[in-house]
Design a protein around this nucleic acid. Structure first.
Lengths: 184, 184
DNA sequence: GTTGAAATTAGTACGAA
DNA sequence: TTCGTACTAATTTCAAC
């Protein structure tokens, strides 16, 4: 876990320096480093690039409602959209959330109306713009939430707490979400 | 741009190998590599870690409505939540979107009710779960969208296109969003 | 899991095109 | 700006412990 903590902050650190930071020997660091990669715990190393510096100053979220039993097609179309940085299938009112980065607002509009809307699998979309990315961490590790988890009370206790009830709500999955499997 | 393309896929590549992949000399690669870092185009290098492998199998999006003129406090509280991987200020129905990774559903519930709801700046929340992360790219580059952009028609043309109108909608900013500045 | 030495590779500094 | 090369420093590999 210590190794992961170091590597997510500095992916280009040498294994020798990593060994020193973590407090193990060089050879051991190499062994564990390799094991983490082979295991898939470390998926890859990447450079964090400033999108604004490369001309992609507009970031938008597109919430997509997918026609049931057309998920496979939706996924296939997504793979052909390189300007999509992130896509997740969600519970709630919409079925998927897409994050795109574009050069200008018009490009977002074109993306939504020309490309997304023309996919038969897409039933409806809703677009919001990102005004500011407050924080973006490479990846959260369990050690990050340690304080929060130890301080966590059991659900029963929490319910009787000082939280104004009715203030928040969970949104369940839309009907027909059984069609969510990747092969449908 | 070629350098960035290589580095986002392999952040640990040696500068020598990078030079070869891009087709420039080793010395030049060092110069440009340094320039990109100094410029801020490359913000940092990081390891992509599989959250499931580290025990964080649950991912949730929390949409937050923030009490106006309490943005500063909201931001301050966010900084104290290490389990938050991403937070963006958005237009639309909600004011912010938070992505958290936790060990189980109960932890998400505790996070929302105990931690978020207790922040005075938080007026309301809405939580959805992420069922599948279809794609996650390190960062989108302008070269990715080249095909899409050249194929893009002007807005007027697009409007007259074969897109079923009324099928999608943009969601404007909520009222009072003037309080969005970081110092409010 | 550690240490140490050999082989390889990376990073730096220059002059020239 | 870019390239080629020589030089120095560091990293990785591999061995024995």
């Amino acid at each position: 876990m210590k190794i992961l903590e170091v590597l997510r902050e500095n992916g280009r650190i040498s294994v020798a320096a990593l060994a020193e930071r973590v407090g193990i020997s060089r050879a051991n660091a190499y062994t564990r480093f390799e094991a983490l990669r082979a295991d898939g715990a470390i998926k890859r190393f990447t450079a964090e690039i400033d999108p604004v510096r490369t001309g992609l100053g507009i970031t938008a979220l597109i919430f997509v409602t997918v026609r049931q039993q057309m998920w496979k097609q939706f996924r296939a179309e997504l793979a052909r959209m390189p300007e999509v940085e992130y896509c997740a299938i969600t519970t709630g009112q919409h079925d998927a959330m897409i994050l795109v980065r574009m050069g200008d607002v018009a490009a977002v509009h074109a993306m939504v109306t020309d490309r997304l809307a023309n996919i038969p699998a897409v039933k409806a979309t809703e677009t919001v713009f990102i005004l500011d990315e407050v924080l973006k961490r490479p990846y959260v590790l369990p050690s990050d939430g340690e304080k929060a988890r130890t301080a966590r009370r059991p659900a029963q206790e929490a319910q009787g707490g000082e939280v104004p009830l009715g203030m928040m709500r969970f949104v369940g999955a839309a009907e027909g979400r059984a069609a969510l499997q990747k092969d449908t």
